[in-house]
């Protein structure tokens, strides 16, 4: 890949490590330290679509939080455009699995949320500018005519479209997506995958897309990064080449697709088993990991 030869990758992770202190609980009175990520190095070129798969507990969301600037790494550096990430910024946008729309705002007002205050260019936009921008981006995600709907009046797929429009509206260079389609039904998911690719092609954003679906990873990504079970290490990066897919045919039935899906599957399969045996589970934001097994009981159950 020529990515590494380029002088300035858009995103550059250098030997990232991140640990969590697990709060003491009844089952685990001492508490413990968990390494979520360990020695991750990854370069992403500008305009690239990279997907990230890994077993649960492999630190996918942690990695995204680091990139979004919501947390800082314990070791290593996160660089965007060669500058270290020190906090959230409007050059990056996050799309969450649970949409995270503001329920008291209409669709248009949700999209305009990121446009309030001073923008990327240091200019304050007028209300009219914000409204027309919101309209434009709702149109881009195929939701014209739904400007005045409240989130509770929209279906899951429509909510996620609004969320994507909100992230695009303030024109970030990088889109960080955390299992954005996981909560949607299969048909809506496929439709949104299609549209995300269309938006990616027309806007040229750099997209880092986290998913637990191998199919989705292979279908969307130019490269698929496979993470190991906890502590999350970069197991391998698989280049995906599905040839020309401008046509409307069923890409997923291609021989190339099936082969590459299987490659990612075999890489991931062992890790998923390992994670299950170790009983790894999500660490909650409050620092507790209720499903996490105690180190001593490892291997007995499961």
């Amino acid at each position: 890949m020529t990515v590494n030869a380029r002088p300035m990758p858009k995103i550059s992770l250098r030997n990232i490590g991140k640990q969590f202190v697990v709060r003491p609980t009844k089952a685990n009175p001492q508490g413990s330290i968990l390494a979520a990520l360990d020695g991750i190095s990854l370069d992403v070129a500008a305009g690239e679509f990279i997907t990230l798969v890994g077993p649960s507990g492999s630190g996918k969301t942690t990695l995204l939080d680091l990139l979004a600037g919501l947390t800082r790494p314990d070791t290593g550096r996160v660089l965007v455009d060669g500058r270290e990430v020190t906090g959230p910024g409007r050059d990056r946008a996050v799309v969450f699995q649970q949409y995270a729309l503001f329920p008291w705002r209409t669709a248009a007002s949700n999209v305009a949320f990121g446009l309030e205050g001073t923008g990327n260019d240091g200019v304050k936009r007028s209300r009219r500018e914000r409204t027309s921008k919101a309209r434009e981006y709702l149109d881009l995600v195929g939701l014209s005519g739904f400007e005045d709907r409240y989130p509770h009046e929209l279906s899951g797929g429509m909510k996620q479209r609004v969320a994507i429009a909100r992230s695009l509206a303030y024109e970030p260079d990088i889109l960080l997506m955390d299992e954005p389609f996981a909560a949607l039904d299969a048909q809506t998911r496929e439709q949104l995958q299609e549209e995300l690719l269309r938006i990616w092609r027309s806007t040229g954003k750099t997209i880092l897309f986290i998913t637990h679906s191998i199919e989705e990873a292979v279908y969307l990504g130019q490269r698929v990064a496979v993470l190991s079970s906890r502590p999350g290490r970069l197991k391998q990066i698989v280049d995906i080449d599905l040839g020309e897919r401008a046509g409307t045919g069923d890409v997923r039935a291609n021989k190339a697709f099936v082969e590459q899906r299987h490659r990612v599957w075999s890489l991931l399969h062992g890790e998923v088993l390992k994670a299950r045996e170790a009983g790894h589970a999500k660490i909650l934001p409050d620092g507790s990991a209720p499903d996490e097994k105690r180190p001593s009981s490892n291997g007995k159950a499961a």
Binding site: A68, G69, P88, G89, R90, R92, V94, F96, G114
Partner: peptide, 8 residues
């Protein structure tokens, strides 16, 4: 809150 924080 996370979503708003991510917007800086």
């Amino acid at each position: 809150v996370r979503a708003a924080r991510s917007l800086g």
